[in-house]
């Protein structure tokens, strides 16, 4: 039951830490790294609030052990902002289109949208719905979230 050394790249910086094997990746990010942007909703893989990118693809951080992330590259919602800490293009679009109500699901929505737009800057409505299908918004504010993703896609295309 001894602790394990892990070395993880988070939002571009490498961190070496000792973790208990039973520690989930979501608890590691919040509790050990103080990255509170990753929200924990259900803790059993249903709500999607804890979504992060693992080597560029979206996963649920509550369904992975921190030890399993050893040697891998993670992007949390904090990693979506610009280098000076101001909101990135996608985050701006969420703000401008008011793609949130209470904001609890927002980090997961942003991560899913980021993964979608990285592959496809002109997604159809169905593609957007499919991409955020694993993220629950219990305010049911989906329409504006979708509009925010469409706005971000438009801006991405305009920026070329």
């Amino acid at each position: 039951m001894s602790k394990r050394n892990i070395s993880v790249t988070i939002n571009g910086s490498v961190y070496t830490r000792q973790v208990e094997p039973r520690l989930s990746l979501s608890d590691f990010l919040r509790g050990e790294q103080n990255l509170h942007g990753t929200h924990i909703g259900c803790e059993h893989g249903v709500c999607g609030a804890c979504s992060i990118l693992l080597d560029g693809v979206p996963i649920r951080a509550c369904l992975m052990l921190a030890v399993q992330a050893d040697g891998q590259e993670l992007t949390t919602v904090e990693g979506l902002s610009q280098d000076d800490g101001t909101p990135g293009l996608l985050q701006d679009a969420f703000q401008d289109a008011h793609g949130m109500q209470c904001g609890y699901c927002t980090p997961g929505m942003l991560i899913s949208a980021q993964a979608l737009l990285a592959d496809n800057n002109d997604p159809s409505l169905d593609e957007i719905k499919d991409a955020i299908g694993g993220n629950l918004c219990r305010c049911t504010g989906y329409v504006q979230i979708i509009e925010a993703i469409q706005l971000a896609a438009t801006r991405l295309r305009e920026a070329g």
């Binding site: 094997p21 039973r22 989930s24 803790e43 059993h44 893989g45 649920r60 509550c62 369904l63 992975m64 052990l65 030890v67 399993q68």
Partner: peptide
């Protein structure tokens, strides 16, 4: 054994599974 963990992790979190050893095959 833990592979993707998409079923086992919730079982561990809810303590429906309490193994002594988890073997990672990833």
């Amino acid at each position: 054994i833990i592979a993707g963990g998409q079923t086992l992790m919730p079982m561990l979190s809810m303590r429906l599974a309490r193994p002594e050893t988890v073997i990672d095959i990833n």
